[in-house]
Amino acid sequence: MQDPLAFVIAIAHIAAAIALLNGITTTFGQAKIASQALESMARQPEAADSIRTTMFVGLALSETSGIYGLLIAIIMLFANPLVTILLNYLG
């Protein structure tokens, strides 16, 4: 290991990529919500309005984990605290 700073930055980029992987599970959850809502709307068209409202709220709630992953990735790339600590340590 020649340069500790390069190592930390490379690890931070890999960590950002891993944090973005939770998009897989988030998408599966949202797809399940949308398909279930479509099925209930087809079964009961008169209740479509209330089902649509509940579906949007459910989609937004399950989207939260994906957004957290995105924010962690952005912090890793642009505002990484570890790089600052390392720069202070190296002097």
Partner: peptide, 16 residues
Amino acid sequence: VSLSFRLFGNMLSGTI
């Protein structure tokens, strides 16, 4: 916190 992060994350990703 979750309410603000949701809106912030969506708008920031579009901006980026």
